[in-house]
Design a protein around this nucleic acid. Structure first.
Lengths: 343, 343
DNA sequence: ATGCCTTACGCAAACGTTTGCGTGTGGAAA
DNA sequence: TTTCCACACGCAAACGTTTGCGTAAGGCAT
């Protein structure tokens, strides 16, 4: 088992100094052509690769982006990561991914760990607990130490930094509008508890659409789901003897759960009840009937976030003080769950 | 914007040497109690955190595990990552994730990048292209440089290292047995092209089950799908005027696609045709009808893989020469798609 | 007063790089 | 023969740690 070869070893073998080897590999004119060729041949033979750690220490940068997301087993977040990776790799950056598991503590630990030398900057979607706790000191501290942070999806208004979001309210409004334009009058919304920023925003968009259409908003058509793991029974109870003709769900799981409940109740989708979800994942695509949904373009978000971060990392000082918020357009992906029934 | 504080800065402020600070923070008896307290107070005040990069360089290890998977937007792989993360974090390891995007070149690049200082060892599921190309030099080289590699799921028989797999053939056999025990006679299989190891193994298990039941295997009931993105139409053609009473699919997507095709053809699941898939993902769980499936216990695989790797990383030299293969038990998750119809 | 031991600290090397600058050697010009 | 200039290379510092060992100061015993 041959260990990794270093400059020092090459230098020793060739009986030259370390600096000569280093310069030779970089084709420095300081070094004679002859020596250069010898060194390079040797380096290739022994498969020399510069040690990233040493380079990081010397350059005081790691060429690594830290991504912290609330859940790793989550379609939307993985699409975002896909986008980040794409841009990062193009620009020679590595990506480290950590999940906070929606735990505040784990978010802090991961961030501190990566901040102490492992990453140059962060792309972050905050944990539920963090949103609830409203404690952002770890983010502020990281930024204070000169490491840029880009927030996406679940952002924090109070923290001043680059952000990538979708216009949640607008997306929800568009979706609701679509239901209204189909002639639906009794549109229920399945949403989250208020401290989840995106849930609240989407609810607002729903309400805005109703008002614009002068459809009375009715408290009893709003369900704020607490326990996401148990949403199906909550939805079942909620829908029981409620005469709705459409459902807008603020995420994919709620939409699917609603569809299942309706199916059990013998209702037809879209004839009896139309459904629109949020987040264009595989569930919406493959469900029968396939579900109309508001696409968040996760990969795009990742791409934009990575670009913002790398701009900050490589930008001149002028740009550093300026923070941008990129708003990704949502789009309504129309599928069977809102197909107009003929006649 | 205060930069990260280093030992040197603390030393300067307190007018002591760097080594004194370092030792004081480690509560060395070499340092007087008085100095120790002073240093620690100062360190806490300035939120000192040792620089991981410097430590990595000094210790010649990074406490980081590199995970390379074929796809990041993939439920099964993310569950595996979840398992890896769990164990890794418990043991103080970081996890770097890279996706090869099923490209051989990207797999090599990622591996070399991480191997040159960023990770101490690898957990890897090889890209399709790599399996097709049968070029494993990057894996061998990495191991030759003293970095342990654990292969999972899509493994390579020719490479000698730790492995975590499921018994694909057995899982498939169990699934097929279940269909047979339900009284199904004309069981089709939707599988992949042969060079995908898991596809082939699962097909073998299917055939084995048929033989054990003395059901004739019929070539025309085997569909090897080439273009996974277009599987629905392939399946549709395949199923057209074929009188099958059960379908075994070697992955989740094929199972769902089959279910959709059957639905379009007006067939009832499970009454007309029973379906079993492979991989217990969200699609199988939420589909109507919910799909019976062979669970691979992805998180378990991740846990085991991480344990194997960390054992190698921290084990004494005796253990290093010995390679283990952990076989994770599959289990059949019975759902509606194979419910026995009464009578 | 001298010697010795303990206490409390600093020095320096090491991990693997990069790079500005200093320097020895050779040849050519005067 | 002396002087000068390239050329080709080496030295050393720096990045932030850790740690074995050396050492100054002080106290105590003789």
């Amino acid at each position: 088992m041959k260990q990794k070869v270093t400059l020092k070893q090459i230098a020793k073998e060739l009986d030259v100094s370390i600096s000569t080897v280093s310069k030779a590999l970089k084709d420095s004119v300081e070094i004679s052509l002859d020596t250069r060729q010898k060194v390079k041949a040797f380096a290739k033979l022994y498969n020399y690769k510069p040690n990233n750690i040493a380079l990081s220490l010397k350059n005081r940068k790691t060429k690594t982006i830290g991504v912290i997301i609330p859940e790793i087993v989550h379609h939307f977040f993985t699409t975002v990561i896909g986008g980040v990776e794409k841009v990062a790799n193009e620009k020679g950056y590595n990506v480290i991914i950590c999940s906070s598991n929606n735990s505040f503590d784990k978010e802090v630990i991961n961030m501190e760990m990566l901040a102490s030398g492992s990453a140059d900057g962060f792309i972050l979607s905050v944990a539920k607990e963090t949103q609830l706790k409203k404690d952002y000191h770890h983010i502020e501290e990281t930024m204070n130490q000169g490491m840029p942070v880009v927030l996406f999806d679940r952002i924090i208004d109070e923290v001043v930094c680059d952000k990538v979001i979708i216009d949640d309210a607008k997306g929800a409004q568009t979706a609701t509008n679509h239901l209204l334009s189909l002639g639906c009058k009794r549109i229920a919304i399945l949403t989250t508890v208020d401290y989840i920023s995106v849930g609240k925003l989407r609810t607002n968009g729903y309400l805005r659409a109703l008002r614009a259409y002068e459809v009375p908003e009715r408290e009893e058509l709003i369900l704020k789901i607490e326990d996401i793991d148990n949403c199906e029974s909550e939805i079942s109870d909620f829908l029981k003897d409620k005469d709705v003709d459409a459902i807008f769900a603020v995420n994919e799981l709620f939409a699917v759960a609603a569809a299942k409940v309706l199916h059990e109740q013998g209702k037809n989708i879209p004839k009896d009840v139309a459904i629109i979800g949020f987040t264009d994942g595989i569930l919406s695509k493959h469900f029968i009937p396939s579900l109309t949904t508001v696409s968040q373009h996760g990969e795009d978000m990742g791409v934009q976030a990575a670009k913002l971060l790398i701009d900050k990392l490589e930008g001149d000082d002028a740009a550093i003080e300026e923070y941008r918020t990129v708003i990704i357009d949502t789009s309504l992906v129309q599928r069977q769950s809102t197909k107009k029934t003929k006649g």
